[in-house]
């Protein structure tokens, strides 16, 4: 359950006994309830896009940070994520939380931070490696050159090659 809009607190089932109060879970009066069938990673990714779109761009941390979070989340969604992205999100969260000019930036990472803490498997099952992967499809990055040269030989592809460090034989 997301209490009080995108920048509010995300509560998991085990927290349903908590109280709506200034001292515990503050709210502006809004609720979003997500059924157990919902993918909380996709919920958080949607919120991340929302904040990047809403950022006015005045201060550095929010302007760049919200877009960096989007890139991390999109990378994970594409199946190219690794523990590196999880660490990055925490790092960006710590910065935005204290250095942003206004509440939007300060709270922009809340939904990602909360869901990472409470629904971590929703992230982890998408990760490709424990180490690091490029954010883009390497073979796709050769498509333009393949088209221009008319080549399609094995050397013109990255096929059959596992990506990244640690997964090679």
């Amino acid at each position: 359950m997301q209490v009080s809009g995108a920048s509010g607190v995300c509560l998991a089932m085990h927290e349903f006994s908590r109280r709506i109060a200034f001292e515990d879970v503050p709210t502006a009066g809004a609720f979003m309830v997500f059924g157990a069938h919902r993918d909380m990673f996709e919920v958080a990714r949607n919120f991340a896009h929302f904040f990047a779109h809403e950022s006015c761009g005045f201060c550095t941390p929010c302007r760049v940070g919200t877009s960096l979070v989007v890139r991390c989340m999109d990378k994970i969604a594409k199946g190219l994520g690794s523990q590196h992205e999880i660490r990055e999100i925490f790092r960006i969260h710590r910065l935005l939380n204290v250095a942003s000019h206004c509440g939007l930036g300060q709270a922009a990472c809340n939904p990602v931070f909360d869901t990472l803490n409470k629904f971590r498997p929703a992230y982890e099952r998408r990760l490709r490696s424990l180490d690091f992967e490029p954010a883009f499809d390497l073979d796709g990055a050769l498509a333009s050159a393949r088209q221009m040269t008319g080549r399609d030989d094995p050397g013109a592809h990255f096929v059959g090659e596992s990506q990244g460090f640690g997964v090679h034989p």
């Binding site: 990047a52 779109h53 809403e54 950022s55 006015c56 761009g57 005045f58 302007r63 760049v64 919200t66 877009s67």
Partner: peptide, 9 residues
């Protein structure tokens, strides 16, 4: 002047 918003500023 600055124009645009977010990362597009």
């Amino acid at each position: 002047a600055l124009s645009g918003r977010g990362i597009g500023k």
